[in-house]
Design a protein around this nucleic acid. Structure first.
Lengths: 238, 238
DNA sequence: GCCAATTCTTGACCAGCGTCAAGGGACGCC
DNA sequence: GGCGTCCCTTGACGCTGGTCAAGAATTGGC
């Protein structure tokens, strides 16, 4: 595992993709970059555990990180997956100063570690930075509230359908071929068991989704979209 | 319905209870108050609809507001209830500038309307204000993520148990007598149908919850807490 | 106090999810 | 190639949450 190193141009580019920093100008981006360091991790590395004291937050330059809680039996319960160009654990900056979940690095992953104390100082020195952070946190909050509503008001199959569509929309998947995630993780993401996912996926053929092994094809995006909404709620967002 | 009026001392006290403003000093509180106006609403008044252009956000001085989405059939699907001393719709400040949900006033309610443009200006002029806002938004985000995980990993009865405990902890209920909310709304809050709530409530007698009509008694708080955790996840928060 | 409207409960029924268990398939390792 | 491991699928089964429908209890208005 490589040592920490300062950020280079490619890292800056990754940072600028993070929603948290997307709207920053070059000067502000530099200010953030100055508080960070880069390090590569091996697959399976435990970045931090729930309850650990937190003095930094992270952005993913390349790869992915799983945030998860633990069941009493010791199983992982996936909270979310952080992909390239996303930041996480910002909550550690304030408040209790402890990480609320566990974080495990997936594959070979390069992370940008942003020092909490230094970043807070940068926040003090740079008004715009705080503004953009507020903006993106509020947007994320709307997303989370939507997610909660979605879990309450939609059936597992509908949630699966929505998830497939969101994969396509975010360009993480093109609508045909193997999914970018293990099905286990997809199941965890939408809040069901792997067995239920198999059945839900097969039931989606009535919405134009063909599934053979790990090869999935969305034949009619509009039909799938309609399937999400039927019996469901009017779209909350936008 | 009364006209708008400026904030008086009692309103300032309500503002200072809002998590968003709880840590503010008197001077900063004044700065926020200067951007606000107060108005009383009748029961059932529609404060705003999803998609409406947003130029302000609100804090509840007294009473409550329901945030809800609409089903295709026109039914309300409760997203959350905003009580005394809470603020909402801050997301309207930035981003699309549109409200993401509908808001209906409950009972006779007094709201503090905080003008968006003025508040943004106050944010620019006052560093600490932005800091505290970041702090509380991040805390709320942790709460929402916990909520999502909770919905995925716990059974409806466990969610009900958690909800009862949260009512007690927030002093909204003392653990015996009538619930502070209609059961319809409780059901919506934990993401089930009213009929299922009736059954879940009766099933909770094995966790020391006695239910007769609208009179509910939590006999053993510790037992109920254990019920939440069994088969569930390790506590995410703290 | 009475009636009407709403809310809550109960029952019956069915579809769907979780669970347990077994089987198939892909992949890596030797 | 053969083997083991891990992941995914399938089947069977019990449970429970959603739905529909009817009845009880509560509320509010007059």
């Amino acid at each position: 595992m490589a040592e920490n190193r300062p950020l280079v141009a490619a890292d800056l580019r990754a940072l600028s993709q993070a929603p948290l920093f997307a709207q920053l100008g070059p000067a502000e981006l530099e200010a953030v970059a100055a508080t960070g360091s880069v390090r590569r991790y091996d697959h399976g590395a435990l970045l931090f555990s729930a309850g650990d004291e937190a003095d930094a937050f992270y952005a993913v330059a390349e790869g992915a990180v799983h945030l998860f809680a633990l069941t009493p039996e010791g199983d992982q319960s996936l909270v979310t997956i952080i992909g390239s160009g996303e930041s996480f654990a910002e909550a550690a900056l304030f408040g209790a100063g402890r990480f609320p979940v566990n974080a495990e690095v997936q594959g070979g992953t390069t992370l940008i570690r942003i020092d909490g104390r230094l970043f807070l100082k940068a926040l003090r020195d740079n008004k715009t930075l705080g503004f953009h952070m507020l903006d993106s946190l509020l947007a994320r909050q709307v997303f989370l509230i939507h997610e909660i509503h979605h879990l309450k008001a939609h059936s597992p199959s509908q949630r699966l359908a929505s998830y497939l569509l969101s994969l396509i929309e975010s360009d993480a998947w093109n609508g045909r071929g193997r999914l970018p995630l293990r099905k286990q993780l997809v199941a965890s993401r939408i809040g069901i068991e792997p067995e239920s996912l198999s059945r839900a996926l097969r039931r989606l053929d009535e919405a134009g989704v063909v599934c053979a092994g790990d090869h999935v094809v969305v034949e009619d995006e509009a039909l799938l979209r309609a399937y999400c909404a039927s019996f469901g709620e009017a779209d909350l967002l936008r």
